[in-house]
Design a protein around this nucleic acid. Structure first.
Lengths: 120, 120
DNA sequence: ACAATAACCGAAAAAAGATTCGGTATACTA
DNA sequence: TAGTATACCGAATCTTTTTTCGGTTATTGT
């Protein structure tokens, strides 16, 4: 894992939380796993905008911080299954609130966004 | 504002939400404003780890997306005051949950972090 | 007149994070 | 045996975000 050059603030709950799930696709990955999508390829299929590589990297980080658990069967076609730990599950209410809030404001954000683009 | 080269996913609530408040210090800034800290210098004092410049930039983005409002009095010492809009206030329950969740797991994260550093 | 303070802004540089690409290993299937 | 699928890794590159730094403007206190 990459070594930071700027000291991290871990005395602030917000910053700790972002360290755990602030990655571009982490909450989407957690959401997918929660919906029963367990294997990397399938997670990738459910989030086509994310590359498989970034899913692997972020899964490894989630694993490192105990948000997900991995059970690898070392048989054909190398079958790894990820599931949420207790920590991961404790994130679900948050995840749902964030998703709901975002969905509620998505039209407004898109509008604002297109104004930016139009004004060029 | 920086022009993105990679198309953004705005059909996913999570991604929309992160577009609005995913910046490194945005939730901290919103929290400060909510606590009655209204002026950029004071926000900076309350978040010393963030540079004044990044607070300015993120305030401008929050303003652009209607999360905060600005009332500038054009008098000495150029007194700008920021306050939350309805959208900004609708973020507060989320903010509190994120902060609480993070605070609850901060010790665990710090431990895991130090294991990484020790193993070098 | 001059220092100090506040709120900016622009641009370059640095840092962090994501993406692309090519590789390994394994084992089934045709 | 060759082809396909899965999981994963390393490294280079690219993108995005943050930081650093040096302005500008305006007003008050000395």
């Amino acid at each position: 894992m990459y070594e930071k050059k700027i000291e991290e603030e871990l005395d602030c709950g917000i910053r700790v939380a972002f360290k755990i799930f602030g990655g571009k696709w982490k909450l989407c990955i957690i959401d997918a796993i929660n919906r029963g999508i367990a294997r990397p390829v399938d997670i990738h299929k459910s989030i086509p905008n994310a590359t498989l590589r970034v899913i692997e990297i972020q899964l490894a980080e989630l694993l490192f911080f105990g948000v997900v658990d991995k059970c690898s069967e070392e048989i054909y076609p190398k079958k790894s299954e990820y599931k949420l730990t207790a920590i991961g599950e404790s994130l679900l209410p948050l995840l749902n609130q964030i998703d709901t809030w975002g969905a509620k404001h998505s039209e407004f954000v898109k509008e604002r966004q297109s104004e930016l683009i139009d004004s060029e």
